[in-house]
Each structure stands twice: as structure tokens, then as C-alpha cells.
Amino acid sequence: MVRLLGALILGGAACTAHAEIAVVLNSQDASVSVINKSSYAELRRIPVGKEPHHLMRTPEGSELIVASSAGNELLFLDASTGDVKRRLPNISDPYQIGFSPNRKWFVVNALRLNRVDIYAADGFRLVKRIPLRSTPSHMAFNRASTHVFVTLQESDELAAIDLARAEIDWRMPVGRQPAGIWMTPDDKHLLIGVMGRGHVEVVDWRARRSVKQLETAQGAHNFQTLGDRRHVLVSNRAANSISVIDQETLTVVDTFPVPGGPDDMEVTADGRELWVTNRWARSVSVVDLATHKVVRKISVGRSPHGIFFVNAARE
């Protein structure tokens, strides 16, 4: 009995030591929830800077960068444990962040301050501050890393910035309150969640024109790949649903309900589970992708926004 108990304790400790984590940003609580991906339990809540909205992995992969927009800093977390390893101050209003595919540029959308800052990714040296009205929110890059495309939520536009020149190349209207933006795997089209109208605008970025509108549901917001290089998910934040888009045919192939204002998403590498932050419900929903049913709800902090885990579907 004692031996069994000992084995259980040791086994449990081993499980805890190797538990994979999910990291969720509680944007209105200035904290990060670290969740055990296997037990679905919140392990701890780490105070970070104010208004953490988005996060991403460093190009080499060992760290997570959490953008604390009102805290004006980047926090570097251990991608495996969630521990804060270092802070990089003086990055003003980092709402959304991104590395160009060639790892040369690090781009910061300063939503509140109406600006896009271009940094040299090596050393985070500021190259240029580009005033860009109004409310630059999300971003996507083309494969060659010549451009970053930014949605302007309040001026209803898409802006293309030439990275080498660090200048605005062009801008075009794309519909009311554009939010999330996604480059299709063939590098041809940009998908834009038109939050104010409830559809996804398909833009041929080389021709600089809209080619299609995909009706999803009210509050079309952000994107996440399913990992099969064909399908991408879009969260419909007001309709409380998630739509599946076929990127080859550019059609909506499915829509299923997820309550609580679904926002950012992650899909497990095996394609079985979808994790969604519920912006209006202080929780994360876990969806079984075989049945499209919410199978778990994990309580986190106020206004959960960004979410990340290491072994996730990426392309």
C-alpha cells in the first residue's frame, strides 16, 4: 500500500514536471494563466504588465513573447514552464506583434497610439515609427517578407507597409471594423475578419482588390489554422460561433457554436482539440474537433485574449 502510494506520488510529480502548458493572457487582469494541458487545471496566474493582448513564440522557439500594451513592454516567458525570464521595456503600446518570415523584422501595432513600429528583429532596434490612423490592430506578412499587412479597425482599411523602405505602400477599404488577418498558404489571398459586418473579406493583395466575401457570422474576428494547410478557423465573437473556411475553394464549409465571445484560438498538433479564449466569460473553451462540441471550460482571468501552446497546429 505504502509502495503504491509512493509510486502514485512519484508518478504524479513526474507528470507535473513534464506537463505541457497552455498560456492564456488575461487582458483586463494584467496577468497570464498557465494551464496544465492534460488536466485542464489552471496551475498559476502570473502578474505581467498591463493589458497583455497578444503573444507569440520567438523564432528560435524557446521563449514566448507577451506584449503588454499598456505596460509598454515585452515579457519573455519560458515556453515550457511559463516563467518570466526577462522583460524588454520601451516597446510602446505593443498591441499586436509579429516577426517577418525571414526573421529580419519585428513589427508592433500600437493600436491605442495609431502607429506601427518597425524594429530590426536582431536586438529589437527601432528602425522606424510609422503613424497610421486609425487603430492598427492585426497583421500578416507575405512569404517573401517584403510587406506587412495591417488592419485599421476604425478607418475600415487594410494598409500594406513596405518593410525594406519602412513606408506605407498602399491602403484600401475592406469593410466595417476589420480585425484579424490571415495569409492563405499559397501566398495569394489575405482573409480579413470584418467584425462590424460579420463576414470575411478575401483580398488579392497583389492586385490590391477584394475578390470575395465569405459570410460567416456577426463579429468575424480572428483566424487559426487547422494544421492541414487547407482549412482555417475564424471566430465570430458576437455570434458565439466558429466558422471553418476552405482556403482552396474560398468557401465556408462549417460553423459550430462556442459560447462566451470566442476570440483567439489554438489547435492541438494532433488536430483533436481546439482551445478558444472566451472574451466575455472569463474562461477558455476546449472543443472536440471531431464532434464540434465544447467538452470543457477552464476558468481564467478577466477578458482572456491571446492563447498559446507549444505543440500546436501551425501551418
Partner: peptide, 22 residues
Amino acid sequence: QTWLFEAAVQPALYWLDLASLS
């Protein structure tokens, strides 16, 4: 907060074309 927002406030914001104030 969730119930009030989803039942009354959010629909009103979208109706008024003020989704960005969500």
C-alpha cells in the same frame, strides 16, 4: 456581466454600428 453583455449590450452596439466599443 457576461449575461447582460451578450443579451443586451453587444446586440445594441452592433445595431448602432459601434462594435469597436465592445
